[in-house]
Amino acid sequence: MHSATKPTTKPFLIALLMILTLLGVFPLDVVLPSFPALAEHFQTSTVDIARSISLFAIGFSCSLLWIGPLSDRIGRKKLLLASMTVAIVGAIGCITANNYSQFLLFRVVQAVGCGGFVLSQALVQDMFVGKEQERLRIAIVTAGGIFISISPLVGAWLQTHWGWQASFYVFTAFAILLLFMTYRLLSDTQPAVHPSRHTILKGYAQIFADRHFVSYATISGITFACHFSFIVISPIIFMDQLGLSPYQYSQVLLLYGAAYVLGGVSAGWLNKRLLANTQIATGLWLIATSGGVMLLLAYGNDISTWTVLIPMLICTAGTTITRPISNSRAMNLFPHSAGAAASATTVVIFIAGGLISALISTLTHNLSTTLGLCFLILSALGLGLNEWAKHRPHVL
């Protein structure tokens, strides 16, 4: 259901959405330069720390199963306030953890609270219409890429001056700001009806029974998995295997963010000129190309910063072109259940990213080859799903 949005409040609402986007990537990416410090502090390996990121993504996904449908019934505002409070508790728990097991537990608590970030998609669906939704989603994905590239640089600076705990303090400060903005800017228009477990499961059954929804959500999950897999293993490649310092590593990721910006600009340009399925295919072909380039550069060459980064820049551009449109195609199938549809889409995205990145992180001796093959297989699957959806239009 679309609510009337006053022109004077739009800039503030967009700012709120951008903070949601920032916090959506911040707890994952700001700690990347701190992998060696976290491993030393908790007396474990950087591979274990990398797996904690995958666990965060899976815990985040599980919380989404309830947050979206609940927000359709008791309102976005209440759920966002509650989830941010839980995320703050989790972040503070990570700071005070005495061992790695406690740290993992509180990271999961933080992940459950971060499930509230999915409501940004529902808020876009609620408060904006038509092409404005797609443009805003492209802007959100582009901003996410900028935040992804900046977060490790911020993390390296925080690590150098105040240690790994500082990133959790900064997250807490932003979450408190978001609490204040949510309280002041949002108003709930949904009736305060408490959904039963049966009602929620029935709603998900209806959503996942739509094969077009599953196709577009899976395409979005595929593109995210390519991005997320690289993010999770990038500290292992650049700091463990290539010996870069946390600051040098964060500088490398600035180029990664630049690819997000380029992809976002391209997505906006293509959105005005191409059909949605054509734009989706364009991004997927770029991901396939990046997989081929990565395999070619890995074959017969020693691993280096550029043999990894060049294909990842191509992949990132493809991801940014494809994800916003596939998200919109999936969300628009269920405009009156935006919360549940947003949760369903994001569950698919993060489960795919978490499981695939966890698998890749176990193959530390052939990471470039594994990534290249992964990109080729996933893009081929995405292209097949896109063709299937294009030739079988959804029937309302």
Score class of each variant (00 low, 15 high):
L275C: 14
A281M: 07
F334I: 02
A288P: 04
Y256I: 03
L286H: 00
A258P: 07
S304Q: 06
A298C: 03
W269H: 15
A298Q: 02
S343M: 03
T362Q: 11
M312T: 10
H336D: 12
L284A: 04
I303K: 02
S266L: 06
V252K: 09
L373F: 00
I310H: 03
I351P: 10
W306E: 08
M312S: 11
Y256S: 02
I325K: 00
G353A: 07
N327T: 00
I321D: 07
N366K: 13
A338V: 07
N366D: 12
T278P: 06
A341N: 15
V347T: 13
P311I: 04
T370S: 09
I349P: 00
V252N: 08
T370V: 12
N271C: 09
T346G: 15
L373H: 03
C374A: 00
L253D: 15
S328I: 01
G372M: 01
V347G: 12
V347E: 11
L284D: 07
V348W: 15
I314Y: 03
I303W: 11
A330D: 06
S337R: 07
R273T: 03
T345E: 04
T289C: 05
R323N: 11
L359W: 06
N366S: 14
A344H: 03
V265R: 02
A267N: 14
L295T: 00
A341R: 15
M312H: 05
L297I: 05
G339Y: 08
Q248L: 05
L262K: 13
S357D: 10
N327A: 03
T307Q: 09
Q251S: 05
L355V: 03
M294D: 01
H365D: 14
S290I: 13
T319F: 03
N277L: 10
L296K: 14
Q251T: 06
L367W: 03
L297R: 08
L371S: 00
I325N: 04
L274I: 11
T364R: 09
A341F: 15
S361G: 01
A340R: 06
A352Y: 04
T278Y: 11
A298K: 03
I303H: 06
A342P: 01
N277P: 05
